[in-house]
Design a protein around this nucleic acid. Structure first.
Lengths: 232, 232
DNA sequence: ACAAAAGTGTTCGTTCTACACCCATGC
DNA sequence: GCATGGGTGTAGAACGAACACTTTTGT
């Protein structure tokens, strides 16, 4: 074994799948690459570890802040998986750790500190076209979206797409758009309001909608949904 | 940005959580460390990438073969998550990718090609004691075991603990031991036999048991269970 | 015959689904 | 009043838990 073998080291990046709902679509934050390889192609935002001692979760939070101007603390941010095929970056060996971030629909387009061209893009069309993204980012996006879809079933993750106060209909729209299927408004209402500590009434109500004002809620302390809300 | 900054590189290991059922207990394969840090302590088997171009899944398969003598091809082996706290290894920066492997109970103790002292250890007592494992391996083990427990609910993973032919009771014992709870034999039988392509009858039956011979099955092609088999 | 484990049938209560219906607002 | 969406009630289907019961072996 000990025949002068040196421990190999590799470069490490974090790549972010930042999801939100805009214009009744599930959208992902993409950047246009300015340099080779894949110059001009769209890619997930991300980057190398800033130093040999930067924590990987901290690196993901730092990238999120750089791209969106938001603090990671108030955002859902979780690791999905790591991609380490040898030639996924043609320049050199790079493994990347994929993260899923979920934001509410922001009033203004993100004003990142970074000068790169950054844009919201519908997830559906991005996944439908092969090779629409640089590197293996289509796979990274696909895995993260599937994670999000699955977690809506048995966790309270859907509230991460909503602002501080939201209606039951807002929450239902999250499910409908992320899953791409219609849910019965009446049964959905009963399900979510009967889970303990999922939704906390603020006492406020919406105004100026087409119909009866809806009660406003904020996130409760519950992290898991039991019973789960299942897809079709 | 481009002020002479060098891309930092880090060492990468894969660590394996190899689970099996022995003596009616969920057990994990551990090695006794021979060198500092944590010399004499138990740790998960694993090791550094063999070269700068080794695929990480291939590295996990290689480590599995080195430790158990088994080909990864016939074993369930999946990535769980990556651990990258800066000082998780006191010597140098190392990030590790945790993998979950599941084996049937082997007739003989594993005869690995590696000379290190390797042993099966019950998972329950290992997780109960803090600091029973080196590095952050208690966390890695915990995450992998929770992954296995969760996947029994909605996938056919339980068959990975069984040999090529098994009875419904064998499969139920897997669930009972991994989950640590009793299941009704009659209802369990109905559930698993009614999932399409989960269990394929071999036509053979057990002999020399206390009661009526049980039909033998082998794995079918189904990967997911619908409806799921839920924990309490 | 008896014990033991495999496998089937049945009952009962819960949950899901579909939809009728009432409520509260803007116009 | 009427349209619009919020929210509640309810009947029927589907599902799961509990358990009586039958089947097939070994001793």
């Amino acid at each position: 074994m000990d025949d002068g073998w040196q421990i190999p080291t590799v470069a490490v990046t974090v790549d972010l799948v930042v999801l939100t709902i805009r214009d009744d679509q599930l959208q992902v934050l993409l950047v246009e690459r300015g340099i080779e390889p894949y110059a001009g192609k769209l890619a997930l935002p991300g980057g190398f570890l800033a130093s040999e001692t930067e924590d990987i979760d901290a690196a993901a939070g730092r990238e999120l802040t750089e791209e969106t101007g938001l603090r990671a603390k108030h955002t859902h941010l979780e690791q999905v998986r790591t991609y380490g095929a040898p030639h996924r970056d043609p320049r050199r060996r790079v493994i990347t750790i994929g993260y899923l971030a979920i934001l509410p629909n922001l009033p203004e387009p993100q004003a990142g500190g970074d000068a790169r061209a950054v844009r919201w893009t519908p997830v559906g069309q991005t996944l439908r076209r092969r090779n629409s993204l640089a590197f293996d980012h289509t796979r990274v996006l696909s895995d993260a979206v599937e994670r999000a879809r699955a977690k809506l079933e048995y966790t309270t993750l859907a509230t991460a797409f909503c602002g501080p106060a939201f209606t039951v209909a807002d929450l239902r729209h999250v499910y409908e758009i992320v899953w791409g299927e219609r849910l019965d408004p009446r049964n959905f209402h009963r399900k979510v309001t009967s889970v303990e500590n999922f939704l906390v009434p603020t006492g406020e109500h919406t105004t100026k909608d087409g119909g009866r004002p809806a009660a406003l809620f904020r996130r409760g302390t519950a992290q898991t949904l039991y019973p789960p809300i299942m897809r079709g």
